[in-house]
Amino acid sequence: MIVNLAPISEIDRLIHEPARFQVMALLYVVESADFIFIMGQLGLTWGNLSAHITKLEEGGYVTVEKGFKGKRPQTMLSLTRQGRKAFQAYRQTMKQMLDEIPE
């Protein structure tokens, strides 16, 4: 059986990295969340998360809003429309590709 692996070249590498995928997935299912919430949910360190968020922000997938809650600084993150579409497309591609691989 010949397996068509052409879609693998279409995989969004920005999302494909496991930590970034987790961040995208979490932000996909909520409206927005701050750094601390994402760190706690995904078990990522501040530095690690910060680096991934920078990449996702540069890719136009995530918006970062810095503000204050009382006197405390708060960084809220949410997916952009482009990020949401990219995540949906990534899921679709992955699903299609994995479905084509025989047992």
Partner: peptide, 15 residues
């Protein structure tokens, strides 16, 4: 919520 939960768990808005 303000002084115990938020500094430990952060904030989230659901869909």
């Amino acid at each position: 919520k303000r002084f115990v939960t938020m500094p430990r768990m952060g904030t989230v808005k659901f869909g």
